[in-house]
């Protein structure tokens, strides 16, 4: 009889989450911050588009599940505002 495999510490899983957010084509954002806060996994940073932002929670949940974790994911990322073309020129 073998004992159940202990879960991978969440701190290690969060490294894989961050890597996946950079390399998974659904998100593809390098440099997002992924941390555990209480029982939640929180993602912060700037992501290029709303479509990519909408994928964050599911991508994170997939990686967590693959490592035996299930916890709430909070997406606190933001998308850059690009509606305005520019501001006044900077004189140099």
């Amino acid at each position: 009889m073998t004992s159940p495999t202990p879960p991978v510490p969440l701190a290690h899983v969060l490294l894989h989450v961050r890597d996946t957010l950079a390399t998974d084509g659904r998100v593809g954002e390098l440099g997002l911050e992924v941390v555990a806060e209480g029982d939640d996994v929180v993602v912060r940073g700037v992501i290029a588009t709303a479509a990519r932002q909408a994928e964050i929670v599911s991508v994170v949940a997939e990686v967590l599940a693959a490592h035996g974790w299930s916890c709430p994911v909070r997406d606190l990322t933001r998308t850059p505002a690009v509606a305005s073309p520019t501001t006044d020129p900077e004189q140099l």
Binding site: P80, A81, V82, P85, T87, P89, E90, Q91
Partner: peptide
């Protein structure tokens, strides 16, 4: 925070 910055 905008589409482009202009430098003069």
């Amino acid at each position: 925070g905008c589409a482009y910055r202009v430098f003069d």
